[in-house]
Design a protein around this nucleic acid. Structure first.
Lengths: 228, 228
DNA sequence: GCAGTTGTTTATCGCCCGATCACTAATTAA
DNA sequence: TTAATTAGTGATCGGGCGATAAACAACTGC
């Protein structure tokens, strides 16, 4: 309320950080700020949260848009490890186990209010960034998962998944994704155990994939299709 | 670019609409506008799109926020029919058929750039509206679906679905939902046939539900759980 | 045709926004 | 100690925002 008193910070006491450290500190705090306020949030409010004055931002970033681009970079590109692809393809371990471990790790990164809200804000802004992210998920994750599901269901290996297979993987993946959205964005009640949610979803995917695409379960599949 | 020339619209020619018609026209156009620009879009730009001047909006709506509330109302509340609950529970028809018909109708309503973007913008704004929408989906749709899945899997009827069952229904429902998001918000390529996507997802749900929760498939279930 | 009512515009207010500039304080190098 | 460099601030600019008030234009009933 009474933000009138300028408080007169004791400027001399706190240790001065190196320029790069300071910059990173600004980006990190800005990420939290924009996650809450959206990219329409003002630079003055942001500066207030950083404990500095607004013009100082312009010493570290040429414009607000440049700052936002840095926020994107740290949120999207940094966390995407490449050990994940290997994990998914490691056939010395059961597929269920691999999938559960992968999604435990993946959701460990993206299931936070900050990550998800930045993701949606940038998506609504129409940035090509989201489209490219969707492409990465498709190529690095879903294509691998389908390959393993085909193997699990006793189907012949083929490099390219069919559009229908890819779509089923998307439905599965998005279902898990949306658990995080409900919990961290809508703050709606969810199943308390994330692990069980993932476990059940993985089981359903493997069973469903075999049911829809499997040859070894042709009897079931025919019965399914006959109803339609 | 050269918006300088005021264009001097021929004001006398166009027929004057009744006040209520005019109001509804404004709300409809405002919905499209906010879906694209977000609720941060300016009233001047909106008025320009409506072909009127900005102060005129304030004769029809006391404030910008009131206009936004009307937009919510028409987007969320109007389309939600109540024949859907009956459709889901109609056991004279096969479950697969009911689910496919329901999701064909449901996605027919919500799968549009307009609907989905308004949904996300309001969700990010922190409005309680989204949380209540989530509650409606849970009670009116998912609870019914689980009841029918239990019946299909030969399980005893119980009124309240378990949290794990509800979560599996959410994963399934969200997976379908996200097909629309990918197509209409991210404008990413999707399986061209929405019907097949729904059909496969429904098949996977029924097979997956039986696999995870079914008693008649206890052997498979035990095998599944043993891996973990 | 005129009065009253309703629809619409022009002009404007106060506010907040992103950005810039000139200045001061703190740190570093000699 | 002093000169140069860097970090940070206060004041301010032009512009867009939501909202208001007063004037004007167009219908309506008499």
């Amino acid at each position: 309320m009474s933000k009138k008193t300028p408080v007169k910070r004791a400027r001399t006491k706190q240790r001065r950080l190196s320029p790069e450290e300071r910059r990173q500190e600004f980006v990190a705090k800005a990420t939290e700020f924009f996650a809450e306020e959206g990219f329409g949030g003002g630079t003055r409010a942001l500066a207030r949260r950083l404990g500095v004055t607004q013009p100082l931002l312009y010493r570290y970033f040429p414009s607000k848009d440049d700052l936002i681009k840095e926020v994107y970079r740290t949120v999207y590109l940094e966390p995407f490890g490449d050990g994940w692809e290997k994990l998914l393809g490691d056939r010395t371990r059961p597929l269920r186990e691999r999938l559960k471990e992968f999604y435990a790790a993946y959701t460990g990164v993206i299931f936070s209010r900050k990550w998800l809200r930045i993701y949606f804000y940038s998506g609504l802004k129409g940035l090509e960034l989201n489209r490219s992210y969707v492409g990465i998920v498709r190529d690095k994750i879903l294509t691998r998962i389908i390959r393993e599901c085909r193997n699990e269901a006793g189907l012949s290996a083929q490099n390219k998944p069919s559009a229908a297979e890819l779509e089923m993987a998307w439905v599965f993946h998005s279902g898990i994704f949306y658990y995080g959205v409900r919990k961290f964005v809508y703050e709606a009640p969810v199943l308390e155990s994330k692990e069980q949610m993932i476990s059940d979803a993985v089981d359903a995917l493997i069973a469903g994939f075999a049911s829809v695409f499997g040859e070894k379960e042709e009897a079931r599949k025919v019965a399914v299709k006959a109803v339609v």
